[in-house]
C-alpha cells in the first residue's frame, strides 16, 4: 500500500492534475475571501469556507476522474493486480494519496484566519473547525469520485458521474423544501427508490431472482408500515433525502457548533464508498 501511495502522490505532482487542483482551490479561496471578508469587512473565514464548498463540485471530479479510469485505459490495472497487493491495499493506497493532495489547500487555508486577524477579531475556533469539517467533506467527496472513476475507463464519463452525484447532494437542501410530507407520497417515493435498488442489484449480479428478493425484502416492511401506521411515514422521505445532503452539514460549523456527529457522518460516507470501490474494482477481475 505504501508503494502505491508514494507512486500516486508523486504522479499527482509529476502530471498537471495536482497543480491544477491546488491552483483551482487556492484561486477560489482567494476570490471568495476577497469577496466575503474584504469587500464586506467580515473577519469570519468560516463563511468563505462554506461558500467554497460549491467549488468542490468541479474540483473533486477533476481530481478523482483519473484514479481508476486511467489505470484501466492504460492497462496498468493489470500490474496492480499482479503485484503482491490485495484489493484493499490498492484502493486504500489510492484513496490516501487523494486525501493527502486535498490536505494541501486545506492546510494553506489555515493561514487565512491569521491574515484576517490583522484587520479584525477572528474566532479561530469556529474558523479552524469549519476548515477541518471542510477537509472531512473533501475526503467524503473524494471517496465518491474515486468510486465513480472505478466504474468506467473513460475519465470524462467518470468526471460526469461524480459531478452528477455531487450536484444531487448539493441541491438536496433546496429540493427537500418542496418534498410533500404526506405519507402517500413517502410510500411512492420509497417504492421508486426500492425499484432503483433492485435494478442496481440486477445489473451487479445479473440475477433476476436476487433483484426480486431484494425488492421484496424492502417493500414488504414498507407496505406493512403503510397499512398499520401510515402517519409514521409522513415526512420520512424528506428525512431520508436529507441524509445525503453532504454539503449542508457544514452549516452547523459556520454557526459555531462543533458537531462531532458530522465528522462521524463524513467518515462513514468515506468508508462506505471506499468499500463500494473495492467491490467495483474486484468485480472487474471477474469480467
Amino acid at each position: 500500500m505504501q508503494a502505491l501511495y508514494k507512486k500516486e502522490l508523486k504522479l499527482y505532482f509529476v502530471t498537471i492534475t495536482g497543480y491544477v487542483f491546488l491552483a483551482f482551490m487556492l484561486l477560489s479561496a482567494g476570490i471568495y475571501s476577497s469577496l466575503v471578508n474584504f469587500v464586506y469587512y467580515s473577519p469570519c473565514f468560516e463563511y468563505t469556507v462554506k461558500n467554497m464548498s460549491f467549488v468542490l463540485l468541479i474540483a473533486i471530479p477533476l481530481l478523482t476522474m483519473r484514479v481508476f479510469a486511467d489505470e484501466k485505459k492504460q492497462k496498468t490495472e493489470q500490474l496492480l493486480f499482479l503485484l503482491p497487493m490485495d484489493l484493499k491495499d490498492i484502493v486504500l493506497g489510492k484513496y490516501l494519496a487523494l486525501i493527502t493532495v486535498t490536505l494541501v489547500p486545506a492546510v494553506i487555508m489555515c493561514f487565512y484566519p491569521f491574515i484576517l486577524s490583522l484587520y479584525g477579531v477572528v474566532n479561530y475556533k469556529t474558523a479552524f473547525t469549519t476548515i477541518l469539517a471542510f477537509y472531512f467533506l473533501e475526503c467524503a467527496l473524494c471517496s465518491i469520485g474515486m468510486f465513480a472513476s472505478s466504474l468506467t475507463e473513460n475519465q470524462l464519463i467518470a468526471a460526469v458521474i461524480s459531478f452528477g452525484i455531487l450536484l444531487v447532494c448539493y441541491m438536496i437542501p433546496s429540493v427537500k423544501e418542496n418534498i410533500s410530507p404526506s405519507y402517500a407520497f413517502s410510500l411512492k417515493a420509497f417504492t421508486v427508490i426500492i425499484i432503483i435498488i433492485a435494478f442496481i442489484v440486477f445489473f451487479a449480479s445479473s440475477s433476476i431472482p436476487a433483484a426480486i428478493v431484494v425488492g421484496v425484502i424492502f417493500e414488504i416492511p414498507l407496505l406493512i408500515i403503510y397499512f398499520k401506521n401510515p402517519t409514521w411515514l409522513s415526512g420520512k422521505f424528506s428525512d431520508f433525502v436529507s441524509c445525503f445532503a453532504l454539503f449542508d452539514k457544514l452549516s452547523s460549523f459556520v454557526n459555531g457548533v462543533c458537531d462531532i456527529t458530522v465528522f462521524i457522518y463524513y467518515i462513514t460516507i468515506s468508508a462506505l464508498f471506499v468499500c463500494f470501490t473495492i467491490q467495483s474494482v474486484g468485480r472487474r477481475r471477474w469480467k
Partner: peptide
C-alpha cells in the same frame, strides 16, 4: 500490453 506508467 506492457503495464507501464507513461509519466514515470
Amino acid at each position: 500490453i506492457p503495464p507501464v506508467y507513461e509519466d514515470m
